[in-house]
């Protein structure tokens, strides 16, 4: 059998290396019965069309952010809600909790898409950062900041609430956009700073921990059910080991990231930025939405429950 895996990332990114590891392990564990073919760089379409191909079993695996599933269950957007979660563990508990899992079941019923393995196993980048032209020392500096975001109502509303002036730009135009002053700041996972070269145009970098991110291995359910139990087991093991390998690469990169960035001329890194005021300000935002009945049912309770676990 051939399992086709589509990815948005380049082969030499840490994600790309993890997918290659997965393909090698699957070959080994299934004695070559299953051939995992990797399509990097969105070769077979934008993520939105990849999701449609996944649902139709044209391809079988598409590891990426879980938010692409929000097409079938709106609540899933809140896995990337800015400043809603304390840390990665809190977020992991939420994702593996009852409410979020029930959302994933809806997706499985409607779209034939399930998740391979445990989502939090493979973090997508260590933490989120904010890069700006002028240094940001306190939360107040965000007031009036022209910030780039992607087209997502929740993200735009949240940053507007924090006082920033949000401008929507495609990811590929961000570098140019900062360079020309259309925006003066951009949020990014730590790992993308180097590859996208954002520090060349926005050299002031702070760690925000805006929200945790992980790679969800979305897969077609019919393809999964067609496997023998042994093959399913081989896949699961390969996933767990590839995810562990990805974490390893990530840790290595994180260990040197600060030093690597500071070695670049004019770059100013502050990974000890206090995001407390931002979290506090965002709590007003979520409370107001909850009061207005605009949040998915049970969300606030589930977030709280995940915290005390």
């Amino acid at each position: 059998d051939t399992w086709r895996l589509s990815s948005m990332m380049t082969p030499d990114s840490f994600e790309g290396q993890a997918y290659q590891k997965f393909a090698d392990l699957v070959e080994e564990y299934t004695d070559g019965d299953i051939d995992v073919r990797i399509y990097p760089n969105e070769q077979i379409g934008s993520m939105d069309s990849v999701v449609e191909q996944l649902s139709q079993n044209v391809i079988q695996l598409a590891p990426s952010g879980i938010s692409f599933m929000s097409r079938w269950e709106e609540g899933i957007t809140y896995a990337a809600a800015p400043f809603l979660f304390d840390d990665y563990d809190h977020w992991s508990n939420f994702v593996n909790g009852e409410l979020f899992q029930s959302w994933l079941e809806t997706v499985e019923e409607e779209a034939n898409i399930a998740i391979l393995g445990n989502i939090p196993d493979m973090p997508r980048g260590t933490f989120r950062t904010l890069l700006s032209e002028t240094p940001i020392e306190t939360a107040d500096d965000i007031e009036g900041l022209k910030i780039r975001q992607y087209q997502n109502d929740l993200i735009i509303d949240a940053w507007t609430h924090l006082g920033a002036e949000v401008r929507v730009l495609p990811w590929g135009e961000v570098y140019d956009g900062v360079n020309r002053g259309i925006v003066s700041a951009v949020t990014s996972p730590a790992e993308a700073i180097m590859s996208m070269r954002f520090y060349e145009v926005a050299p002031n970098i702070i760690r925000t921990d805006e929200y945790p991110q992980a790679v969800s291995w979305m897969m077609n359910v019919n393809a999964w059910n067609a496997l023998t139990p042994e093959q399913q087991d081989a896949m699961s093991r390969a996933h767990a080991e590839a995810a562990a390998y990805g974490r390893e690469l990530l840790d290595e990169a994180a260990a040197t990231l600060k030093a690597d960035l500071e070695a670049e001329e004019g770059v100013n890194v502050n990974f000890d930025f206090d995001n407390g005021p931002l979290v506090a300000k965002m709590q007003e935002f979520y409370s107001a939405r909850e009061a207005a009945g605009e949040l998915p049912e049970g969300l606030v309770a589930a977030v709280d429950a995940a915290r005390t676990e």
């Binding site: 140019d176 180097m194 590859s195 060349e200």
Partner: peptide, 18 residues
Amino acid sequence: PPSISLIVYAWLANESVA
């Protein structure tokens, strides 16, 4: 410059746009 093609390449090759 400016060039859409070069921006695409910069992303694929992990190279500096500037």
